[in-house]
Design a protein around this nucleic acid. Structure first.
Length: 663
DNA sequence: ATAGGGTTAG
């Protein structure tokens, strides 16, 4: 039977057609490529107005290069550009990040006497900021005797977009303190959006709240753009609830509003709410969805690991003809990787016509999380081969891939050359990968030395990797050092107490095990309960450790018991290293049997056709015993079983795991 | 005929 594909809502038009040219030139129906030809054929070459229209239309429709060409043709004819000519030409320069042309335009604007023209000045400030030349933007701003709000906003935006949101905010403060007597520079909704964007970059909730009050007082809360940015700023500051309140209170909502709300949910891991918001958007019928919407829904699908949902969105991507959109294509790759289907991801990757750093990186990261380090490195070499410059996330992905597969030499190599050969300074995340890689491979002291030598401040992820490695390689001394740091850095996480007490137990230090238990109790910490999810026929089933709530739990335990007999025949011996130490042996086995991933796998097998693949997702790491058991089950029942845990994927098949038992 | 804004992918 053919899968039912939801009926598409027409694709939202591209910016060019979304804002139809307000001025009906007779050539306005011609495509950009023909615009210049039409122009040359029908216009007097001396008509400055016509040249201005041509330059403006080309710049507006995104054909910046052609716009600049028109500008230079006009100059070659020795026509005198007027004050309308420059802003558009300069805008084309900023769209191309072409500082040299921008500087030339700047020079000519001075020659033709537009030094104090605010339209020209604001375009120039914007151009210099977009080209990363904040100093030039600031100098120009300082020399303007009579500034208006557009000029102020241009510079505020420059700061925000060059990652100086704090400077953007203080410039806004300066603007406010200038007094209200000047109408030309009083705050408008555009300025408000820029300032709120600064807030969202800072993730400063207090600031957002304060500005929210200002927004309401000035009546900007009726502006869609302001509402959208406010919503986003609250979310980035951690208040999903306030985001929703802003969204609910908006008088108008456009596609960006809905996309923003869906994104907030998707990024907070609230996939269900994301899909519900989307369904409300479609039901409302007033707003069309676009590439951004689908991209965000793919993120939500990836987050909850729902291949079913992801495929559905992918179908919609195809229907809407968005496959050649780089962002959407990259989201598709990410979705398939995180839903366990690397091969599908690779297929989507191969058909992408335009790939950028992020697309390449998504594929590398995807292979890495599936333990396919060789494939990850192959893609990385290909990427270098075609001349795409890796960024810092690419290197995180490469190092993580090496770490998942234990490729110590490759990892060391790329860590050592990333700075000198690729000008990517190692950050905390790179050090974390290296500590993980070295630690798990048994080079504990090299890992510890690396931490001591590094110039950036350490965090709990880094020490957590070292502590986990200390357990594998039974190093009590380093374990205590790491744990001490972890108790300070991440005091509310109970996992480190649990891990350290396991290490003590492995060493037979029972008094210390008891001490850990007391410590945990005193600080009011409880073990994070493990749970697993499995999706069957569009329904998600949740299993907790030792689940006795699930309606079918008795059947599941019975089935696991049946399997247990076959397991023992296959040579299985329970691995007790992950169970509490303060219970007797029999209880330990019961405890092990109730691990949520086992329950989910069993339930999956019981409720699917023979031979069907089983996919399970777990909130914590898979324990050693479950790993062994699921491996054997995959052989006994002849099923492919994919388990996604908090760090990576395990593909079990024919009694083997893709990780080669290295994790 | 001219200037400044908000949502997306690793």
């Amino acid at each position: 039977m053919k899968r039912k594909i939801p009926r598409p809502i027409p694709l939202v038009s591209s910016p060019a057609t979304q804002n139809p040219r307000r001025h009906g030139h007779f050539y306005s129906t011609a495509s950009n490529a023909n615009l210049r030809t039409w122009f040359d054929k029908y216009f007097e070459k001396t008509n400055v107005h016509a040249w201005n229209s041509l330059i403006a239309d080309l710049a507006r429709s995104g054909d910046s290069l052609e716009s600049l060409r028109a500008f230079s043709s006009m100059r070659k004819l020795n026509l005198i550009p007027n004050r309308s000519t420059f802003p558009c030409a300069i805008k084309a320069c900023s769209a191309l990040s072409d500082v040299r042309s921008g500087q030339q335009a700047h020079q000519q604007a001075l020659v033709f006497g537009f030094e104090f023209d605010l339209f020209v000045s604001s375009a120039l400030i914007d151009m210099y900021s977009k080209c990363g030349q904040l100093g030039d933007a600031k100098n120009l701003f300082d020399e303007i005797p009579q500034r208006n709000i557009v000029v102020w906003t241009s510079l505020i935006n420059g700061y925000v977009q060059n990652e100086y949101p704090l400077r953007g905010l203080s410039l806004f403060k300066e603007l406010l303190s200038r007094g209200d007597d000047d109408d030309e520079s009083s705050v408008d909704s555009f300025a408000m959006v820029s300032v709120l964007t600064a807030c969202s970059r800072l993730s400063a909730e207090g600031m957002t709240e304060g500005l929210h009050g200002f927004v309401v007082k000035c009546g900007f809360d009726r502006d869609v753009g302001v509402g959208n940015t406010l919503l986003d700023a609250y979310a980035k500051g951690g208040s999903v609830g306030m985001s929703r309140k802003v969204f609910d209170g908006m008088t108008d909502r456009d596609t960006v509003s809905w996309n923003s709300m869906i994104t907030v949910y998707a990024q907070s891991g609230l996939a269900r709410e994301a899909f519900e918001a989307f369904s409300a958007m479609v039901k409302g019928g007033l707003t069309r969805y676009n590439a951004v919407t689908l991209s965000t829904l793919l993120l939500a699908s990836a987050h909850c690991g729902s291949l079913r949902a992801g495929k559905c969105v992918h179908d919609q991507v195809i229907v809407m003809g968005l496959l050649d959109n780089v962002v959407v294509g990259t989201s598709v790759i990410d979705m398939y990787c995180k839903c366990g289907q690397v091969q599908m991801a690779r297929k989507s990757f191969d058909v992408m016509e335009v790939k950028n750093v992020r697309s390449w990186t998504a594929m590398i990261a995807g292979y890495g999380m599936h333990g396919l380090a060789r494939e990850a490195l192959d893609v990385f070499y290909q990427m270098l081969g075609v001349g795409v410059r890796p960024n810092y996330i690419t290197f995180i992905s490469v190092l993580a891939a090496c770490s998942h597969a234990g490729l110590v030499d490759e990892g060391r190599h790329w860590f050592n050359v990333m700075n000198h050969q690729f000008q990517v300074e190692p950050r905390l995340e790179h050090y974390s990968c290296m500590v993980d890689l070295l630690g798990r491979a048994g080079h504990l002291h090299e890992a510890y030395d690396l931490i001591k030598r590094m110039k950036v401040r350490s965090d709990f992820i880094l020490w957590g990797s070292l502590l986990a490695a200390c357990r594998i390689h039974k190093n009590l001394e380093l374990a205590e050092i790491s744990a001490q740091r972890l108790f300070e850095l991440d005091p509310s996480n109970s996992g480190y107490y649990v891990l350290l007490s396991h290490i003590y137990a492995d060493a037979g230090r029972w008094k210390d095990v008891e001490r850990m238990r007391e410590l945990m109790k005193d600080s009011g910490l409880v073990k994070t309960p493990g749970f697993s999810l499995i999706e069957l026929n569009g329904r998600v089933h949740v299993f907790l450790v030792g689940d006795k709530e699930h309606p079918r739990h008795e059947d599941i335990y019975r089935y696991l018991e049946e399997l247990g007999v076959k397991l023992q025949r296959a040579g299985y011996v329970p691995d007790m290293t992950s169970v509490p130490h303060d219970i007797d042996e029999e209880e330990k086995e019961v405890n092990l049997r109730g691990h949520s991933e086992k329950l989910a796998v069993a339930f999956g097998i019981m409720n699917s056709v023979p031979g069907a693949m089983i996919q399970v997702m777990k909130n914590l790491r898979v324990c050693g015993d479950c790993h062994t058991v699921i491996k054997l089950i995959s052989k006994i029942v002849n099923r492919e079983i994919i388990v996604r845990d908090s760090k990576r994927f395990h593909h079990f098949k024919d009694g083997f795991c893709s990780c080669g038992d290295y994790w």
